[in-house]
């Protein structure tokens, strides 16, 4: 695991925000995942050493939170909201549409490694349901038509990247 200098710098900034180092676990894991894409065993042990914890303390946390992943995912992370308000407005259909567009099931990485689709719980934007997050960005009112457009856009961006 090789962390970028700016990640390391950010980590050293974060730790003193807390009177007890252990508090920084979540923030460190976020920083590492943003940098290298997932939380490896090495990362768990690195965080444990950094915060003077036992590795099990970090593993317990990593596995509790769905946002942390222990394996790499696709280049684009698509999260479709599954919960009631979105479902009432077609969230399940949105998810199925995206699955069809990318030929991949929820929870999996597409064959080309481009996307991972996840069906997640409420994203706190229920008023503009159904909603989808692509990486950090929220897309609102994503009905099936918009889902197809969104898929097209993602594919286009992938093509442009080459």
């Amino acid at each position: 695991m090789k962390l970028k200098p700016e990640t390391l710098q950010r980590i050293d900034e974060i730790i003193p925000h807390y009177p007890v180092k252990r508090s920084a676990v979540l923030m460190l894991l976020h920083a590492i995942q943003e940098d290298v894409g997932f939380i490896s065993t090495e990362a768990i042990e690195w965080v444990a050493t950094k915060l003077e914890l036992q590795p099990i303390n970090v593993l317990e946390v990593v596995t509790f939170y769905p946002m942390f992943r222990q394996k790499p995912i696709g280049r684009r992370h698509i999260k479709v909201c599954r919960t009631l308000s979105c479902a009432l407005r077609g969230g399940y259909q949105t998810c199925e549409t995206l699955e069809k567009e990318f030929g991949v099931h929820r929870g999996e990485v597409s064959a080309d490694g481009e996307v991972t689709i996840e069906f997640v719980e409420c994203l706190a934007s229920c008023g503009t349901a159904p909603v989808v997050m692509v990486d950090d960005d929220l897309h609102e009112n994503v009905d099936c038509a918009r889902a197809r457009a969104l898929a097209a856009q993602i594919k286009q961006e992938a093509a442009r990247r080459g």
Binding site: Q54, I56, N57, L59, E60, T63, F64
Partner: peptide, 9 residues
């Protein structure tokens, strides 16, 4: 000897 813990939820 902190080696045991719960994983998942």
């Amino acid at each position: 000897d902190d080696v045991l813990g719960f994983i998942d939820r």
